[in-house]
Computed example of a mutant assay.
Amino acid sequence: MSYAFFMPSISYMGEGCIKNLGNEIKSRGLRKSLIVTDKILVNIGLVKKLTNVLDENKIEYVIFDETKPNPTVTNVNDGLKMLKDNGCDFVISFGGGSPHDAAKGIALVAANGGDIKDYEGVDRSAHPQLPLMSINTTAGT
């Protein structure tokens, strides 16, 4: 059984939940994703399970796999550049805490401008982040 909740990002949980992603994306009118992940998840083939679903549903994507443990400002800036250069209108984070943290920063700055450092503190953004869908690969995230 799989579950989804909205706060405002979406976290998919449960065996087989990734199969629901295509319909969820289409229902929201989204068209092209920046997938934020890391090289290990790409190399072991887990990201391929996600991209297969996106391909089957004719949803465009680009993969940012440069996320490092405890993401840096550079990770956010590099991911943001890839998002903008490729015309992405939403973000999928795939992995554990580091890809999720980087994706949140990318989605926030994409919608609000400036630099991720501008948002240190509470209630610093004027606009909601870009739509963000998170697929957790660890139990602790």
Rank of each mutant, 00 (worst) to 15 (best):
M133Q: 03
T72E: 09
G140W: 00
C17S: 15
K49N: 13
C17F: 05
D115N: 15
I25L: 11
N70S: 13
L54S: 02
K68R: 14
K19M: 01
K49R: 14
I135V: 12
L83K: 04
T74A: 15
T67F: 03
C17K: 02
L30G: 03
P99D: 07
D101H: 07
R28V: 07
A103K: 06
M82L: 15
L34G: 08
N70Q: 14
T72N: 13
R124I: 01
N20S: 11
I10K: 08
D101V: 01
C17R: 01
Y3C: 02
P71F: 03
D78P: 00
I40C: 09
N43L: 04
I92Q: 09
G105C: 11
P71S: 09
N43A: 11
T74C: 07
Q129H: 15
D78V: 11
R31L: 05
H127N: 15
L41P: 01
D78F: 04
I25P: 06
F90C: 09
C88G: 04
S11D: 12
K48P: 01
L34A: 05
Y3A: 08
M1Y: 10
E24F: 05
I35K: 00
C88D: 06
T137E: 08
G87C: 05
K58I: 05
D78T: 12
R124M: 14
I25K: 06
D38C: 06
S134V: 14
T137L: 03
R31C: 11
L132Y: 07
I135D: 01
R28L: 15
V109P: 12
G113E: 09
N43K: 15
I92C: 06
P71I: 02
D89L: 11
G29T: 04
P128H: 10
G113C: 14
K84T: 14
L30K: 13
Y119K: 07
R28Q: 15
G105S: 09
A4N: 07
D85E: 15
G16C: 00
I63D: 07
I116G: 05
N57F: 00
K49Y: 11
V53W: 06
A139R: 03
V109G: 08
